[in-house]
Design a binder for these strands. Structure first.
Length: 241
DNA sequence: CGTTTTTGACCAGCGC
DNA sequence: GCGCTGGTCAAAAACG
């Protein structure tokens, strides 16, 4: 099966109630290529049939013994091509591919408890809003034919209020994105800071090329998104390494 | 042979 | 208290 069909990717982020802190769901619509690797290594520890869903739900843990991140993967009942991934917990380490593709970037991921504190506040505020069952959805549909590798598009978690902000980004730097941070995922840690997009393995851009690590290449000129980079709470990542 | 996946059993939470 | 459901455990099997 060729991947010539437009690899549309639809991501949604929904905030949860306060009791589900650090838990969020991505709805990813893929075109025949399954779900994307998010840069981490996961070990499957269970599978369960879920009521009202013919598709079983799979349970994964991060293989890093010091990391308590988990994720659940299931296919949507409405659309078999839509994969629902629920992330829970935080990664306390870099992605594995990070070590392969690049050196640690101390300037970016410098130890700084300030970041974690700030995140905590942000999450707390988000939880309060979530109690009102506020749901924020971000949908990104990209048309990047021939691309299957995922780059990262950083978006603000709480700061995104409407999908038009993402459209601004896409207009600013249309696909294939070259935002840096590619393949070092931290999907859960950065998401909702991140939206991933299928990038190539085939023709135009090579993964390595798209993985330049210059912060200046990040397209966060958009006023609605720029706070994300400042609140980027990657300081926690260096706590282990 | 080490790692990962599979799968049935077990446990906890929740509603009735 | 009981049953249902979702999440996790852990032994066995599969895989590389």
């Amino acid at each position: 099966m060729e991947r010539k069909a437009t690899p549309a990717l639809v991501l949604q982020w929904k905030s949860f109630s306060s009791k589900m802190e650090n838990k969020y769901t991505l709805r990813i619509k893929t075109c025949g290529d399954g779900i994307a690797d998010d840069g981490y290594k996961w070990r499957k520890y269970g599978q369960k049939s879920i009521k009202n869903n013919p598709n079983p739900r799979s349970y994964y843990k991060c293989t890093n013994p010091m990391c308590n991140a988990k994720r659940q993967v299931e296919r949507s009942t409405e659309d078999p091509e839509t994969v629902i991934i629920t992330y829970e917990g935080l990664h306390l380490h870099y992605t594995y591919s990070h070590f392969v593709l690049s050196q640690p970037h101390d300037q970016i991921f410098a130890p700084n408890s300030h970041h974690a504190t700030k995140r905590s506040k942000t999450q707390s505020a988000a939880s309060e809003e979530a109690e009102q069952m506020q749901q924020m959805e971000v949908s990104v549909i990209t048309e990047a034919a021939g691309h299957q590798h995922y780059n990262l598009l950083k978006v603000a978690d709480i700061n995104i209020t409407e999908s038009s902000s993402l459209h601004e980004i896409m207009q600013h730097d249309p696909p294939p994105y070259n935002f840096g941070y590619c393949s070092q995922g931290l999907l859960e840690d950065i998401v909702p800071l991140l939206v991933r997009k299928p990038s190539c393995g085939s023709t135009t851009a090579s993964p390595n090329q798209s993985c330049s690590f210059s912060q200046s290449s990040l397209p966060f000129d958009s006023p609605s998104l720029s706070p994300a980079i400042n609140q980027f709470d990657a300081g926690i990542l260096s706590s282990i390494l």
